[in-house]
Design a protein around this nucleic acid. Structure first.
Lengths: 202, 202
DNA sequence: TAGATTGTTAATCGATTAACAATC
DNA sequence: TAGATTGTTAATCGATTAACAATC
């Protein structure tokens, strides 16, 4: 939950920095998100003393600190598994690169796709996974395959040695607990929307 | 938060029903998600008395009740705005239909795309939005355009009369508070992953 | 009736907020 | 020094969990 808020602060600070705002108080920062200023201070103080009493926070400095805390100051090397509609959309999604996620390899089990190149990056066979994870020093596997194939792909990614999996398939997968798993489950978002629409009057 | 858990119960119950399990206790249900049985009972009791003391919950009945609560027993009519990589991926994503989200129209501002048909559904010009929302009785707008265009698209959707917006663009948009907004922000998921990887030892 | 399990009340825990001494 | 704002401790609030009477 704190990380979620740090993400929000980060983007806000980046914007403020662009706008030429040099310092900002917890009060002002909180007001932008309907949050409490004590919460902002507590979130930040947890990671260190970044503020100056009587003044507030140096915008650029705080932005840099949060960037470092979130690990956004470094590059994460990613293998994209599955180059269907979703995989292709993710590959072209600029937000990935913006956050330091570098797609260093693509694999797919469809022989018709293997060998093709997108933006100069060749699509490799699934069997190449262990070799490419090692040679490309890949840390993260992105699963963009159909639900029924997700677990098998996750298993192969873990065996190949990735440290984290970002799962876009609409199914839960299980991984050893030393591997970080992040599910991006669209179903839950849809159900949330559906529920709240159902509650509304009309 | 409760809705999130209801979603999880729902999928679990659907699975149990398929497996032929007739009744399940809060204890058993909780065990599957490392939750507390009191929490399961409380979540469910909030919406009504669905259980039978001494027995547990009827799997099929509870599944149906949650389905109704989540609004998954009805169809939601959707307009997809933007048919780039992301829009195309969402259009072909089977989870949408599975949850009752029926894409009834597609609009895009690229003249090269307007007029094309996908699976028999024509891509319309952005200017058609007010007309199509009305004629197709559309309740939900899905925003799948670049970040810089998201706010303008959201405004047009609201003006056209949708009741909810599902925003996939990597930017926050503002809508009147009688319109339900759900952001699917991949950036936050990436930052979460990045943060936790950064904390891990190696 | 005895055993099991619900729905709900009371106790606990953690997260949010208020208040304030420290200090720029 | 006076005013402002931090970092942090204490108070509050809400959500989770334990306990149990109701009841199948």
């Amino acid at each position: 939950m704190t990380v979620r808020r740090l993400s929000v602060y980060f983007r806000c600070l980046a914007q403020l920095e662009e706008d030429g705002v040099r310092t900002i108080s917890s009060q002002e920062l909180a007001a932008r998100f309907h949050l409490n200023s004590a919460q902002v201070r507590k979130d930040l103080a947890y990671f260190g003393e970044f503020g100056i009493r009587g003044i507030g926070y140096d915008t650029a400095n705080l932005r840099a600190e949060i960037q470092r805390i979130l690990g956004l100051d470094r590059e994460w090397r990613v293998v994209l598994v599955g180059f269907g509609n979703l995989g292709s959309a993710l590959f072209h999604y600029r937000g990935f690169a913006r956050q330091g996620f570098r797609i260093a390899a693509i694999v797919d089990d469809d022989p018709a796709k293997v060998g093709r190149a997108v933006n100069g990056l060749a699509i490799l066979a699934l069997a190449e996974l262990p070799r490419v994870v090692k040679s490309q020093a890949i840390q993260i596997g992105v699963v963009a395959v159909p639900a029924e194939a997700a677990q098998a792909v996750a298993d192969r990614l873990v065996a190949a040695g990735v440290r984290a999996i970002l799962n876009f398939a609409p199914s839960r997968v299980k991984v050893p607990k030393d591997v970080r798993l992040q599910n991006v489950d669209l179903s839950i978002e849809l159900e949330n929307l559906s529920f709240h629409l159902g509650q509304a009057p009309r």
